[in-house]
Computed example of a mutant assay.
Amino acid sequence: MDRRLEPAIPGRGAQGAEVPTRFGLATREADGDWRDHMEKLDGPPVKLRTTVTEEHPKTIVSFNQSPDIPFDRSINAYRGCEHGCVYCFARPTHTYHDLSPGLDFETKLFAKPNAAELLRATLAKPKYSPRPIAMGTNTDPYQPIESRYRITRNVLEVCLDARHPVTITTKSDRVLADLDLLAEMAEMRLVAVAISVTTLDPKLSGKLEPRAASPAKRMAALGKLVKAGVPVHCSIAPIIPAITDEFMEDIVARAGELGIRSAGWIPLRLPHEVAPLFREWLSVHYPERGDKVMGIVQSIRSGKDNDPNFFSRMKPSGVWADLFRARFRVACKRAGVGKGKFELDCTQFRPPAVGGQLRLL
């Protein structure tokens, strides 16, 4: 990776609109028709803009039995994410819909405006048994379009009404827009919030996650949540070797200064189409460092770009992984930060009223 490529789309994480090939989709070959001469005929392409399509699924709660994640159910109010984090492990989900995991993932978004209604119906089912619902597991619940749709807030209102516990993961300080709900839920031990901080360098953040909140805003949001009594977790995710790992100690130290008592780190994961997207990003921004970065990534993933196997996919191995663990452990000890376990309360759950019915109790 010794040649620097020019950014195809400034201000976007992905540098191209790759066509997914995992599902046998036909790729188009040049045949001399008008599509091969669009730019010559119509002029340069206009600025790439974000579009939002509303969809109305029949269910909103997804259940899983994965042994590698600490929750068994989740809600994703949106598909795709305008934050444009080039390393996002969720990018391949767009390929299921014949869309690019590159630029399509961050520009062709989908919103589910009936999410709260569907959740209310799910929680009201006679056999429903409550356990914490995770939000922000696939796409960010507080990405920019949340300011317009407020789907995440509507879901939280249902959870508060039903006394149902929720965990939230985000890269945005927009979470503070719902601080009134979060503070009330926190008093009843119904919520915990994790904010992911990748780097403290705003310029690097602008390359990695171009439309996410700045690192300073995320750290400030963590501090405000702490002051409001909301249980918070600082997630240093992902750790990108030779790119972001230098910020690990400073992020932990800053978290300690803010009174945060829980922090963790997650190594870079490059499933499916994310690996070539990330390699292309390296060629654009760090061509002189690309081979080193990928060499370390492969060293912690058994010689591959990614380890998809249960039990090991979230647990890197090797010398570099041991070094990151040791550094993180020392940093947490110095800062007085640990790995908190948030015991959310499921005993207060009360099925919500649906269809205009009044609550019996």
Results as ranks from 00 to 15, higher is better:
Asn138Lys: 07
Trp265Lys: 09
Thr93Trp: 02
Pro45Tyr: 08
Arg261Glu: 09
Ile168Gly: 04
Gly355Lys: 05
Glu55His: 08
Arg120Gln: 04
Lys125Val: 04
Arg73Glu: 13
Val232Cys: 05
Ala213Asp: 08
Leu41Lys: 13
Val330Ala: 14
Ser66Cys: 01
Val158Asn: 00
Pro210Glu: 11
Lys341Gly: 02
Leu123Ile: 06
Phe23Val: 01
Asn64Pro: 03
Leu208Cys: 11
Ala115Met: 09
Leu119Arg: 01
Leu109His: 01
Pro132Gly: 07
Ile145Glu: 10
His285Pro: 01
Gly206Arg: 12
Ser317Met: 08
Glu82Gly: 12
Ser214Gln: 10
Lys47Pro: 00
Val197Met: 12
Tyr87Trp: 09
Glu246Ala: 04
Asn114Lys: 14
Ala26Cys: 06
Pro130Tyr: 00
Leu118Pro: 05
Leu160Glu: 14
Trp34Cys: 02
Glu18Ser: 08
Ser129Pro: 01
Phe63Val: 11
Glu288Arg: 15
Leu204Cys: 00
Met314Tyr: 00
Pro101Asn: 12
Lys341Ile: 03
Ser312Ala: 03
Arg327Gln: 08
Ala321Trp: 07
Glu187Ile: 05
Pro7Arg: 07
Arg329Trp: 04
Leu179Arg: 15
Asn76Phe: 06
Gln298Lys: 15
Glu18Phe: 08
Gly290Pro: 11
Pro215His: 14
Arg269Ala: 08
Thr152Gly: 06
Lys40Phe: 01
Pro202Thr: 02
Phe310His: 14
Cys159Leu: 12
Glu82Tyr: 10
Pro141Cys: 09
Ala335Glu: 12
Gln143Val: 12
Pro202His: 03
Glu54Gln: 04
Ile260Asp: 03
Pro20Asp: 03
Leu270Met: 05
Lys108Trp: 07
Leu270Val: 00
Arg325Ile: 01
Glu187Asp: 07
Glu82Ser: 15
Pro70Ile: 05
Cys81His: 07
Ala255Ile: 03
Asp250Glu: 15
Pro210Val: 12
Ala14Tyr: 05
Leu268Cys: 03
Asp345Gln: 00
Gln65His: 12
Asn154His: 13
Thr21Pro: 04
Gly43Tyr: 06
Val297Arg: 02
Arg218Lys: 13
Arg73Val: 03
Asp140Glu: 11
Thr152Val: 03
Asn114Gln: 14
Arg327Gly: 11
Cys332His: 04
His285Gly: 00
Phe63Ile: 09
Tyr87Ser: 02
Glu39Thr: 15
Val319Ile: 10
Gln15Ile: 04
Phe247Ile: 02
Asp2Phe: 05
Arg148Gly: 08
Asn154Glu: 15
Ile133Phe: 00
Glu29Ile: 08
Val297Ser: 02
